[in-house]
Nucleic acid binder design. Structure first.
Length: 474
RNA sequence: GCCCCCAUCGUCCAGCGGCCCAGGACAUCGCCCUUUCAAGGCGGAAACACGGGUUCGAAUCCCGUUGGGGGUGCCA
């Protein structure tokens, strides 16, 4: 095999909204290519549109990338700080006769082209010889004939008839560059070898190829790779406005970054042997752009949750405990820091760990221990305690056992088994009223271990409170 | 409208001419395990959009149709 050139890739998001999972996947694939080829991953913020860009969004992008472990070797570069470069390129295009100034308003163009067979700008200013001065936009002179070919790693050769490409604007009349110009200037300047981005950019790629042809000084085009878009349940491109897809949201919900990375990698790609659980290193070692498939993928939260569950269960318990903290009383937490008994949580952690798919579900499982006023679920209480004929008897028996000194899980279990045996019912059946009365919910952590952790005092208190409510009912 | 892309179970992938009356995973259904719920184990249902070619042979190659998507901005 021949020596591959060292890849220089870039991830170039625009800071115009929450950083979403589609962008994260694009970044990840870029990162894999850079790491695998021992090249560089460049981060470039495309904020040429001053109207829509916001530094706050940039912050979000950086923090989400860091959270995912996608590190960059260069940048972040900001296009807003590189305006002189774009202006110089525009000047060269104009001076070389590859572009011309245009003063047409959008309305004027529309009025003229309404009845034209060919849509888009009609080349009205091509030969008017307007000066390239403030107030005039600059349009690239697209050849009338011929074809422009985009050679794409995932899609093959894509051909465009030049006649279908309009004379597009490269500099706005206010002096701001357009994305397509800035991208070409930057990719050239940053020596980018491989452009990996979403499919929505494919239709503008021939424009970039054309620009590269005149600005590139003969340097070879970058290798393009257009990834299929991520879609919602209606099969439309994920939208920041329509769909909940912000990486931040998933973080707050308790998804692990390594699970997210693993899941994202598999959206449009799979390793040769079909394995689904891949470490970061395995991903880097096996990822190939050539194997990325071409059709859009649906971001399936259920499947993500499954992956997340696997990752959570694979965590050493101590680390699981560590990662739970923010969800107990930290940034995303539900409880008062003072009401959380760390040692108790740590003891219960193994039981919690195998029952959650996200860290956000953790507080719910230990709420019986840490939630300030204890209030059992009303529906569950009605069903398991109030409407169960023998509930009162069961609760009394348990209370008596605890008073006699039954404190650990084994004692408590023995006590309940006694009731089960004497009434000929299954243990699962008789534990229901006890569970709801003391833990507050019909489902949750194993009963006896939970009671042991709750402690004699609180268990008795809750059992008595439940018995009192039964008495009230008559 | 015009340009471009795409098309295997509900979903994500495997399949790159014979190993496929199509395989794995999620979801779903059933059973087992079980102190609830999970987790885990076992099993079931579930797809090559359609029509033409090419070929001894097509999920795989070609053409068309249909369907979906993206672009069409002095957004990125």
């Amino acid at each position: 095999m021949t020596e591959l050139p060292v890849p220089r890739v870039r991830f170039a998001p625009s800071p115009t909204g929450y950083f979403h999972v589609g962008g994260a996947r694009t970044a990840l694939y870029n990162w894999c290519v850079a790491r695998r080829g021992e090249g560089q991953f460049i981060l470039r913020i495309e904020d040429t549109d001053r109207e829509r860009s916001d530094a706050a969004w940039t912050e979000g992008i950086l923090s989400a990338l860091s959270w995912l472990g996608i590190t960059w070797d260069e940048g972040p570069y900001f296009q807003s700080e590189r305006r002189a470069l774009y202006a110089a390129a525009a000047e060269r295009l104009y001076a070389g006769g590859h572009a011309y100034a245009c003063d047409c308003t959008r309305e004027a163009v529309e009025a003229r082209t309404k009845n034209n067979a060919v849509p888009g700008y009609d080349g009205f200013c091509r030969d008017r010889g307007l000066a390239f001065v403030p107030g005039h936009a600059l349009r690239f002179k697209v050849p009338d004939e011929g074809t422009t070919v985009v050679s794409d790693l995932v899609r093959g050769e894509v051909e465009f008839q030049n006649s279908t490409i309009e004379d597009f604007v490269v500099m706005k009349s206010n002096g701001d560059p357009l994305y397509v110009l800035a991208v070409v200037v930057d990719d050239l300047d940053m020596q980018v070898t491989t452009v990996i981005r979403a499919e929505e950019h494919l239709p503008t790629t021939p424009k970039a190829v054309l620009l590269w042809g005149v600005l590139g000084e003969g340097r070879p085009l970058p290798q393009y790779a257009h990834l299929p878009v991520l879609v919602n349940e209606r099969r439309q491109k994920l939208s920041k406005r329509r769909d909940r897809v912000a990486v931040e949201d998933y973080r707050a919900l308790g998804y692990l970054p390594e699970a997210m990375v693993n899941y994202l990698a598999l959206l449009g790609w799979a390793p040769a042997d079909g394995r689904e659980i891949l470490s970061r290193d395995e991903l880097v070692a096996e990822f190939r752009l050539e194997d990325v498939n071409r059709s859009p993928a649906f971001f399936d939260e259920k499947r993500l949750a499954h992956f997340n569950g696997l990752y959570i269960r694979a965590l050493p318990t101590a680390e699981f405990v560590e990662r739970c903290r923010p969800f107990l009383y930290g940034a995303h937490g539900l409880f008062e820091p003072t009401s959380v008994d760390e040692a108790a949580f740590a003891r219960l952690a193994p039981l919690v760990q195998e029952r959650v798919a996200t860290l956000g579900e953790v507080p719910g499982l230990v709420a019986f221990l840490f939630a300030a006023p204890f209030s059992p679920d009303a529906v569950a209480f009605e069903k398991a305690v109030l409407r169960d004929e023998s509930a009162g008897e069961t609760l009394e028996h348990m209370a008596a056992a605890v008073e006699r000194g039954a404190l650990d899980a084994a004692d408590l279990r023995a006590a309940l088994e006694q009731i089960a045996a004497s009434t000929g019912r299954k243990l699962g059946k008789v534990q229901a009223p006890v569970r709801v009365a003391t833990l507050g919910a019909a489902a949750g952590l194993p009963l006896f271990e939970s009671l042991e952790e709750l402690g004699r005092e609180r268990v008795l208190e809750r059992l008595r409170a439940a018995m009192a409510r039964i008495d009230e009912r008559g």
